[in-house]
Write a protein that binds this DNA or RNA. Structure first.
Lengths: 211, 211
DNA sequence: CCCTTACTGTCAACAGTGTTGGCAAATGAG
DNA sequence: CTCATTTGCCAACACTGTTGACAGTAAGGG
């Protein structure tokens, strides 16, 4: 391999590797098996060998196609969750609507990738960062759209996240009673109310630091 | 069903076997090193070999004294969190006081065992169960004491847990902005208010399908 | 046709993990 | 002293993520 012939096309950090179309079925099978294993067993307990066995390929192929276990994980959690438009919702109902959108997916079980990343986040910084990105790209714009004139909307969105993530964690991940078995409508009512509180209640002045 | 053992030795929490007092320093060193490693690295990334190296003992000694990595973990998270008596607090201030007690420990960094168990809980069912026990033995009695006549206090305590755990998760574990860098007093005010809401706001009737 | 080249797959190996059992030294009781 | 128990060290096992060498395989050009 001569040096002049090598094209240094943007491979610096690009996750884009070049593979022929012949391996597409194998790659897809790997991704599918990884999604299931990660969601069910969590990041650490899901082994590459098990994923490869589920997909019917050699473990080395997983490495070849996805680089590492961490990259395979990030590939599985690449999801575009479409949050409904909240700009037309009455301001005193946004909290309830947001709670319904967030909890509803978990209640219906349409949350495989999110469950995987939430289970991995506390011990895997990359997963935690993925949650930060999801918050900034999904939740924050939706709430900014609903309250375009509120200067504190970012802080309020963060507070809403604490209530939402905590509910999801207790009910669907840790399964802590009585939250796990609580009537969904009752839970939705309470969580929606506190989210609404975070959205509209006056915030304590924190300008003491900005002299 | 109370057992007769009243004296809980700091070190003598070995599974079944009895060990001589000569190994007490080693056992204590192991427990201390494990506490630090589990809190900092999480359950899976904290290796027994590293814990043994920190404690200056052979990895096999960890197994001999604590049986397994999981048992060592449960030994480290045996914590008696002192929750203040809430029975004398005015009813409209319990939420704020509880938020201060829960978040204050994390803000001051007095939370090593809790951080370890919270990081491990999403992927380790035993850790999740440990959180259930903590909720039942610490949080629930304290709130029952503060609201002895409320028949829904268990449900309300669960709702409070969702707000509390979510806040801790976002701010101290996942470090999601803007919650992580938010002014503590402002955060405490908002979280305390929603906890108060969970405590005193009317609950939606869930008896429709209950009977 | 063969030859070249890149892609696809298989296998073995490496360093690291939790865990186990064997064996030597130390300690204390008789 | 002898002897049994405790304490510690070491090597090994099965497993993990990861790497590299090697063998088929499809495509394209002479």
């Amino acid at each position: 391999m001569s040096s002049e012939n090598v094209e240094v096309d943007e491979v610096a950090w690009a996750p884009r590797r070049r593979f022929g179309p012949r391996s597409a079925p194998a790659r897809r099978a790997i991704l599918e098996a990884a999604r299931a294993r990660f969601a069910e067993d969590g990041y650490e307990r899901a082994t590459i060998r098990a994923i490869a066995a589920d997909a019917g390929v050699d473990p080395a192929m997983v490495m070849r196609y996805y680089g590492s276990k961490a990259e395979l994980f990030t590939a599985t959690v690449r999801v575009a969750s479409d949050l409904e438009d909240l700009s037309t919702v009455p301001r005193d109902e946004v909290g309830r609507r947001f709670a319904g959108a967030m909890l509803g997916r978990w209640e219906r079980g349409e949350n495989k990738p999110e469950e995987a990343v939430l289970r991995a986040a506390p011990t895997h910084p990359e997963a935690a960062r993925s949650m930060q990105v999801t918050f900034e790209e999904q939740i924050l714009p939706a709430l900014r759209n609903a309250f375009p004139d509120d200067p504190d909307i970012d802080t309020r969105a963060g507070l809403i996240l604490t209530q939402g993530l905590g509910t999801v964690l207790c009910r669907y991940v840790l399964k802590i009673e009585p939250v796990a078995s609580m009537d969904f409508e009752q839970l939705l009512d309470a969580v929606g109310a506190t989210m609404q509180h975070h959205l509209t209640a006056p915030l304590k002045d924190a300008a003491a630091q900005g002299r």
